[in-house]
């Protein structure tokens, strides 16, 4: 699985780069959730955060900074990504359904205009 990695050894991107990139994506997503007003865009920001997580998993699975059963550890990280993607797809299905239901009810979906409740 890892056999072709040494051939391009000088071109391998170090783990830190992946981690910094994914942390950056995660932060951009989290900030986006806070500042955007359209629920669809907010949800896109959440997807960005999930993709940041996926990148982290894959980077760790590739670079394996741990001991023990290395092959099994790499597989675990990759499998986790598949599950995260599946769950994200399920969330999209439900989330867009809820946004559609709101749109039918009030013809606009701005989060700040939703203040039906309050103490």
């Amino acid at each position: 699985m890892m056999s072709f990695a040494p051939m391009i050894a000088e071109a391998v991107v170090p783990l830190t780069n992946y981690l910094v990139l994914s942390a950056l994506m995660f932060v951009i997503g989290a900030v986006g959730v806070g500042v955007r007003k359209n629920p669809v865009v907010v949800f896109m920001c959440i997807e960005l955060m999930l993709n940041a997580v996926n990148l982290t998993f894959l980077a760790f699975a590739k670079h394996l900074p741990f001991h023990g059963d290395v092959a099994q550890a790499a597989t675990t990280g990759q499998i986790m990504v598949v599950f995260v993607m599946a769950v994200a797809a399920a969330e999209v299905a439900v989330g867009l359904g809820i946004i559609m239901a709101i749109f039918r009810l009030r013809n606009e979906v701005d989060i700040d205009d939703m203040s039906e409740m309050g103490g």
Binding site: E91, I99, A101, I102, I111, E116
Partner: peptide, 15 residues
Amino acid sequence: KSEESALKYFLLGAF
């Protein structure tokens, strides 16, 4: 308010 709560719960839950 039910739809609104569903959206809030969903977005914050996914977050």
